[in-house]
Nucleic acid binder design. Structure first.
Lengths: 136, 136
DNA sequence: GTGCAAATGCAACGACGTTGCAAATATGGG
DNA sequence: CCCATATTTGCAACGTCGTTGCATTTGCAC
């Protein structure tokens, strides 16, 4: 499916910036921060616009947000199994403490955990930390 | 062990602010943000000082840092099994998406995960998300 | 008590993220 | 193809979190 089709099929209008950002995310092997995107974009885009584009992708289910070791948001394009309502809880992540990179890993079966009385769990993820191959 | 003894035994000088902050952390059932601490403190303390106090606690192994759903740092006092060098990788966490609260949970046995070639894992945690009892 | 290292307070700064508003643009209907 | 309109973009301003540098104060060892 082309970039334009993907955007439209998720209810988003097609614009140059959205096309460029989606392309970037899909080519990347890791989650990209707002700053990464700004740097890598073929043509300058307003900072605020990028925040909004990334947010629209998350709302539409085209990308999902994940925090890096510093607490900054990064975005990765969703695999096809994601949809707009349940695309937060299928990933395991690896966070590099050196470069702050975030990588999506395979799905894993997660252990059961007892949560305190009255708590409701909507998502659970396994989060790994360490050094990625570039920072080893 | 008294607050003062705990501070001293971790190589920290005893000051009023440190005592107050450590007391707060140990009484709390959840991880506290810098802003939480600032608000709850018996007497006004400089913002920067609080950041440094919390950081010193983390460095000394008296508390550990954990990010909430918004990516803001929160601190929780360490259990006795923590020490200055390896107190990052023993917890499972629950993050409330409503109030951004973070709660430390019991230890769990984590599943093995295949990481890409060249990656080194130094810590792994199970992270749960949902609503805490106060926000249900 | 005295001296020194450490802790505190203050000012300034930077990154990240948000909001409001005006101008530009994508898209559906004629 | 053009028009009307809802969306998107750009810009300015703002807020929070977190850091750094420096002067002052304070804990603590002697």
């Amino acid at each position: 499916m082309s970039l334009d089709e993907q955007l439209r099929s998720h209810g988003l209008r097609v614009t140059g910036i959205r096309r460029d950002v989606l392309d970037l995310l899909q080519r990347s092997d890791r989650a990209l921060s707002h700053a990464d995107v700004e740097r890598a974009l073929p043509e300058r885009a307003d900072r605020v616009t990028l925040f909004r584009v990334l947010q629209s992708f998350e709302d539409a289910g085209l990308a999902h947000r994940v925090l890096d070791v510093q607490g900054t948001s990064r975005y990765a394009s969703c695999s096809t199994e994601c949809d707009a309502h349940a695309h937060h809880d299928v990933h395991a992540h690896f966070r590099c403490t050196a470069c702050s990179g975030v990588f999506c890993l395979e799905r894993v079966a997660l252990p059961e955990v007892n949560v305190p009385k009255g708590f409701t769990v909507t998502a659970s993820r396994l989060e790994l930390e360490g050094r990625c191959s570039s920072c080893a």
